[in-house]
């Protein structure tokens, strides 16, 4: 393996730190995230309240810490869902061809014709929103794209001669999939997955912002930003703090994605999405 690119290291470290902080959140937060303290409301950032307080006197820093895990779970969870459903579908479509492929790809085309946010809205509009449901909705939104990518990768690999060599040995479908296709498929799939995490976090927090994610008093970052709107002029820090943390997380994840791309397939560099 080549040396690990710097981008991967730097991004990975940042993401790792955020994950650790999110996991330890409840224990290391200086204050209770939903402890009201009306005497200390709308305080600017200070040494006691690192990110200031909100309209209920709650410590914004503690709330940000407590809410971190939502964004992480959203990003990674939703992506894993889309991976787990999308990749097998795509590989099956590549393998089977014929009617199965047609049916799967028509379904994919249909779902791609619906703008992502709309699909998310549709699914969440009619149920009680919450972290799990939002994660599921976002995951489902990205299933078609993963299916398409997995199918393209599968088709490319199936055209390689070494796969035909395996067929010439009479190898069964399972062996070909497991030993010939998958070991060569995972680099491009990993790269695609890492890109999806960014989008999943974005979509998830946007839906939460609109009120369709975790509900108050949870301190999901998108929700916090939404709740900060009435106080934008007096206490901008209530919205800025979670917003900047969200940006940091997204940049870090993006950088990790670029690093993975450099590591696993330099040819894809600069192709963006």
């Amino acid at each position: 393996m080549n040396r690990i690119p710097r981008t991967l290291l730097v991004g990975g470290v940042i993401v790792g730190v955020i994950c650790i902080l999110a996991a330890l959140g409840p224990w290391i937060a200086p204050f209770e995230p939903d402890a009201f303290n009306m005497r200390a409301r709308l305080q600017p950032p200070s040494t006691t309240y690192w990110f200031g307080t909100d309209e209920f006197g709650r410590d914004v820093f503690s709330r940000v810490l407590a809410g971190a895990h939502h964004s992480l779970l959203m990003g990674f969870g939703a992506t894993i869902i889309s991976l787990v459903i999308g990749v097998p579908l795509g590989l099956i479509a590549a393998f089977r061809r014929g009617w199965t492929e047609e049916a799967i790809m028509r379904g994919v085309d249909l779902m791609i014709s619906i703008p992502p946010v709309l699909l998310g809205l549709l699914i969440l509009a009619v149920t009680e929103p919450g972290l799990l449901k939002t994660m599921l909705a976002v995951g489902l939104v990205y299933v078609p794209i993963m299916t398409r990518v997995a199918r393209a990768v599968g088709l490319d690999l199936l055209a390689e001669d070494f796969v035909e060599a395996a067929r010439a040995r009479g190898e069964g479908g399972f062996h070909i999939l497991a030993r010939e296709i998958l070991p060569n498929a995972w680099p491009p799939l990993i790269v695609e997955t890492s890109l999806r995490v960014t989008f999943a976090i974005l979509l998830g927090s946007a839906l939460s912002f609109l009120g369709l994610g975790p509900q108050p008093p949870d301190s999901e970052w998108g929700l916090m930003i939404a709740e900060s709107r009435p106080f934008i002029s007096e206490a901008p820090w209530i919205g800025l703090a979670p917003g900047l943390c969200l940006c940091l997380l997204l940049i870090a994840v993006n950088v990790v994605g670029e690093g993975l791309r450099d590591l696993l397939d330099p040819r894809l560099r600069g192709r963006g999405h």
């Binding site: 390689e160 001669d161 060599a165 010439a168 009479g170 030993r179 070991p183």
Partner: peptide
């Protein structure tokens, strides 16, 4: 299959 085999043209794609 054991008794009849094939050698391919392109050395870059014939090996995993």
């Amino acid at each position: 299959r054991r008794r009849a085999q094939i050698v391919f043209q392109n050395p870059d794609s014939s090996l995993n």
